[in-house]
Nucleic acid binder design. Structure first.
Lengths: 339, 339
DNA sequence: CGCCTTCGTGTTCTCGGTAACATTCACGGA
DNA sequence: TCCGTGAATGTTACCGAGAACACGAAGGCG
């Protein structure tokens, strides 16, 4: 290596040094068969000598493939989406792809269509949408997209490839856990029902609650934020009839615990609280939070694997489901009456 | 719009429809002067008719500019780096740039050099490194990099452009706050000192503590994690001499509060605890956490502005400092003796 | 021994833009 | 009238790769 030639070497300079045509160099780079070992060696030496790297932009233009995946993230602050983005980036890199994220911010004027547009113009080979709202999915359904498109969300979707956290199973774990502790009256604080994940958790909650024959009670629709949950809990004027609250994410669960505490109620003595996500801090709340853990790493791997298969035209399942796991901690306990 | 022509239209098809040469279309696209209004109109109509978008890959090859910024993030789980990445992406998009992130994971084999290599091969126009360790910075200093390079970290650096959170000012605010409450013996739990931000907070802490003439006491070096802080607090066998702990980030502060609680100590009655970051959940801990808020939004804007200026060869300051703000909450209060 | 493969490699074209230079035309001053 | 000038536009080359096709040499087969 170590040449001082000012600018970046290109494939033809390598070819000249190796005494071959640039196509031979290209073939060596792309592992074509039918290259004489000796020729290959000379090419590799020339590459080494010049410290040559193929220009990926030129390659992308020639092949019509950028090896880049566009990722659209709604609410990029939350733990879940952030972790998923990171996992996707990691898996993509391992597969020789890179990632271009676009975050749809709350107050941002950017619509899902515009985000798709932006990424398509950049020439991404595939699109991945993380944890969208149903309105976004509906909008995307109406956009004709010429590349594989995968959505990370609760339910299978005939229009797109789907990787889904198994919200249903996770929620079932929560309900079963609370029922096993003796709870028979549980409040669900959902996320905004426009969010598919919120909707899935809410449906699964009702379904499982019903199959246990426990009391039907209206849910409280939150906004994912601890602030909302805090205000709700703080506003309670007396100990409610229900003995447990299942919050659709850890943030709200934490807000609840805080609000209940400020209201003079104790968790879990007066009320059990369960969250969803298992954010790293969940075990350090007072009391530590019972919650549901999701394997973002394998989620990211699935996303990339499915998209690669789709890009390369291989056969693929159109749905992958990622398992969840209940993490029982001190914020949930048997209700008073059972003790 | 709305043509059904199968494949993506290119600039020459637009030219044909508009009855001009492709160069004229290119000039319209790039807002060149000296285009007859009527010609411009016809070109724009043709663009509309074909729903044409310029191919950014081809443009990048021709201009040798990708309008892409590579971002290297160490520890992409933490709140700070994540928020910064998001802010940079937002500002970049507003400036017509896109972002390619690479996360350096803990167990990951990828070295900073390899990350730079990876991004350079992709042809990014500039590099941004978020909150690196000093070892990484040292490594990067040894790499010859042919594009502008900016580091988001505590101190100015002659080698790179720098945007820094004003760690010194933030830390000073914390110490002053605690001293004003009456504390005269404060423990600092730092992050790993290989992290520049940890080092900066530690230095600032010592410096300010000294100028108040309060007791010099060895710091505890943590690892940013709540787990570490929890174990430390849980391991205390009796109420220590110091009356307050300043943790270098909110996660550790939370671990401390949890551990102290499990140890039978009350925050802030027995000990005050202050963090750094103001993560969204900070105000929902029990007790709510006193901490330091940083303006990631303007940080992202500064990063992009400086890099753009550098890319375009404009004059720029090589250092921008982002202010911080103390958020006083219930986890800090006057020490027992003062009451 | 001649023909047809297959191997190994080179030539030329293409991808979709921009840059550099050429050309045409109208207009104004000498 | 002629020429210079600048506006408006066209022509050609180029960015750095890969694709398609061409071509010569070696080897197998009838």
């Amino acid at each position: 290596m170590a040449n001082v030639g000012s600018d970046k070497p290109n494939i033809r300079q390598v070819a000249t040094i190796a005494g071959v045509s640039h196509m031979t160099v290209s073939r060596v780079l792309n592992d074509h068969p039918n290259i004489k070992p000796d020729t290959r060696r000379r090419v590799l030496e020339a590459i080494e000598e010049l410290d040559y790297r193929p220009n990926l932009v030129a390659r992308a233009l020639a092949t019509q493939r950028t090896r880049r995946i566009g990722v659209i993230v709604e609410s990029a602050v939350a733990h879940g989406p952030t972790s998923i983005l990171r996992a996707v980036e990691l898996s993509a890199r391992a597969a020789g792809y890179s990632v271009t994220p676009i975050a749809l911010h709350e107050g941002d004027a950017l619509s899902p269509q515009e985000a798709v547009d932006n990424l398509m113009t950049q020439g991404v080979d595939a699109l991945c949408v993380i944890a969208p709202r149903s309105s976004s999915v509906a909008a995307l359904r109406r956009v004709a997209i010429s590349v594989p498109m995968l959505v990370v969300k609760a339910d299978a979707d005939p229009t797109f490839l789907t990787v889904s956290i198994d919200q249903h199973a996770g929620t079932t774990l929560v309900v079963d856990h609370l029922v096993a502790l003796g709870h028979r009256d549980i409040l669900h604080m959902s996320g905004p029902l426009d969010w598919l994940d919120a909707r899935a958790r809410e449906r699964a909650f009702h379904s499982r609650a019903k199959s246990w024959g426990i009391r039907e009670r209206p849910i409280v629709v939150g906004d994912w934020s601890a602030d909302f949950a805090y205000d709700f809990a703080k506003g309670l004027t007396r100990l409610p009839d229900y003995t447990a609250i299942f919050a659709a994410n850890d943030d709200m669960a934490i807000g609840l615990i805080h609000g209940l505490h400020d209201n003079g109620f104790d968790v879990p003595t007066d009320l059990s609280v369960v969250g969803f996500d298992d954010i790293p801090l969940a075990r350090h709340f007072v009391p530590p939070l019972t919650t549901v853990r999701q394997d973002f790493g394998s989620l990211g791997a699935s996303v990339v694997e499915m998209l690669r298969a789709a890009i390369e035209g291989r056969d693929i399942p159109t749905l992958t489901r990622i398992p969840t796991e209940l993490v029982a901690r001190a914020s949930s306990a048997a209700p008073r009456e059972v003790r």
